[in-house]
């Protein structure tokens, strides 16, 4: 089982790097560096996703987390500011909230199936599993028992069994796209005018 030991070592290394990256991001004031490290975090996460047998997700996370979202954040920094203010006095409340939440989650893990356990609840139910349903019992795409007969089971579930979720997901993307147009597209006739007469008196003065 030398192979499995090597894999174990890689996992531990990845997890340690993920932890270190997360802490560095939390402490960093240089926003530019923090954004780049978030991309690194995404990339390390994607690496681990590969080990978790989820290449589709790893691919997406790499494209989205390390690509698009890093790009958007850098664009935002270009339009705003590059550095966060030095922290004010340390406030204990957020730390307490986070520790309580974290402890609750750890408490919740105690009755979970162990990591990698083939008898975990999700592997036992529903029966037959998605894997058998798509391509039949022996996994042969030519098997007549298969309902979808696609080699990639993830695609089969994504687009068919749970195709409606994917429809919703496409709608989410559209919603965000329209939202960004609403917020950022310049109107042809309104060029950066001063604030229009406001609906309330307590709005701020000129920035």
């Amino acid at each position: 089982m030398a192979d499995s030991n090597a894999a174990q070592l890689i996992v531990i290394l990845l997890l340690a790097l993920l932890g270190a990256t997360a802490i560095t991001i939390a402490r960093m004031r240089q926003l530019w560096a923090a954004v780049m490290l978030t991309g690194v975090f995404s990339f390390l996460g994607a690496g681990w996703m590969l080990i978790l047998d989820a290449p589709d997700v790893a691919f997406t996370e790499a494209a989205v987390g390390a690509g698009i979202s890093t790009f958007l954040m850098l664009a935002t920094l270009g339009l705003t500011s590059r550095e966060a203010k030095p922290p004010a006095a340390f406030k204990p409340a957020p730390l307490v909230v986070v520790i309580v939440t974290g402890c609750a989650l750890v408490y919740g893990t105690l009755d979970m199936p162990y990591y990698g356990d083939p008898d975990g609840h999700i592997h036992a139910y529903p029966d037959p599993s998605y894997i058998v349903k798509t391509n039949g019992d022996n996994g042969d795409p030519n098997d007549s028992e298969g309902e979808i007969k696609l080699p990639n089971v993830v695609t089969a579930i994504l687009a068919s069994y749970r195709g409606y979720d994917t429809f919703g997901e496409t709608t989410v993307i559209l919603t965000a796209g329209v939202g960004v147009i609403l917020l950022l597209r310049r109107e042809r006739r309104t060029t950066e005018q001063p604030e229009p007469p406001s609906a309330d008196a307590d709005r701020g003065g000129p920035a």
């Binding site: 989410v172 919603t175 939202g179 406001s198 609906a199």
Partner: peptide, 16 residues
């Protein structure tokens, strides 16, 4: 879907 559209709709208010 409902939340993202709600954020966008709220941001349309006239005041900053």
């Amino acid at each position: 879907i409902s939340s993202l559209s709600a954020y966008a709709l709220i941001s349309l208010g006239r005041s900053r």
